[in-house]
């Protein structure tokens, strides 16, 4: 379980996160939604130790250490490998540094996404870059996967493929935290929603419970919360 406990962060006078708390369980997809860009990505960065914050974040009851990076991975929405590398070299890099690298899964995903080892990272389209990021991140045998805006700016077919991989490779027994402002592609795949606005949690709910008890979709709830 990832526990985010009362974290706050300012950039200068601007509040990015204000007392944000939530938990994300293993085996569940938790989605951080915010229509204004603020706070979602910063929350993921805080969990990964990529930005300082006030408050506390625990992963399976422990603070983040260097070994945690074998258990939790981050898939940002920008390429994280050097542009001059080929996909093959990026994979070698990953297997060099992570003991949790799973080459079979990497090959599976390479095939599924139709990526070619000899392609250079600088030459990939936006959609293929997202797929590469996903392939590299999901080929680690980790317990938690954090994804930042996996669908933004990507063509329809790539989005479908990525959503497919969600169901087939991503969730399994892992905990997933995903940020997005376009819920459409994955609405039916999410277990839990955290609605953020101006750096605070506005509402937190379980999607199936919401459907069962109130007959509302995630988009319905978003409409209520953000337009009131």
């Amino acid at each position: 379980m990832i526990e985010v406990k009362k974290i706050s962060k300012n950039y200068g006078r601007k509040k990015i996160l204000d007392d944000v708390s939530f938990t994300a369980n293993k085996g569940e997809v938790t989605c951080l939604i915010g229509i204004n860009g603020v706070g979602k990505t910063t929350t993921l960065k805080a969990i990964m130790g990529l930005t300082p914050y006030k408050g506390e974040i625990l992963i399976d009851d422990q603070k983040m250490t260097k070994d945690s990076y074998e258990k939790i991975t981050f898939i940002p929405d920008a390429p994280t490998m050097l542009p001059q590398m080929t996909i093959k070299q990026a994979m070698v890099f990953m297997s060099d540094f992570y003991t949790s690298w799973n080459p079979e899964r990497a090959n599976q995903l390479m095939g599924f996404f139709k990526l070619k080892e000899e392609n250079r990272i600088s030459e990939l389209s936006k959609g293929n870059t997202a797929k590469l990021n996903l392939m590299l991140g999901l080929s680690l045998d980790v317990d938690y996967v954090l994804m930042d805006e996996p669908f933004s700016g990507i063509d329809m077919f790539s989005r479908e493929q990525i959503a497919d991989v969600f169901a087939s490779h991503l969730i399994e027994d892992r905990g997933v935290i995903i940020t997005t402002h376009e819920i459409g592609d994955i609405e039916h795949l999410i277990d839990k929603v955290i609605l953020l606005d101006n750096g605070s949690v506005l509402k937190e709910f379980n999607t199936e419970e919401m459907r069962e008890e109130e007959g509302k979709s995630v988009v319905d709830v978003m409409r209520e919360v953000y337009q009131s």
Partner: peptide, 11 residues
Amino acid sequence: NTFIYRLLILP
């Protein structure tokens, strides 16, 4: 390419 992401999340 923001390689720093990768670099700082290496174990």
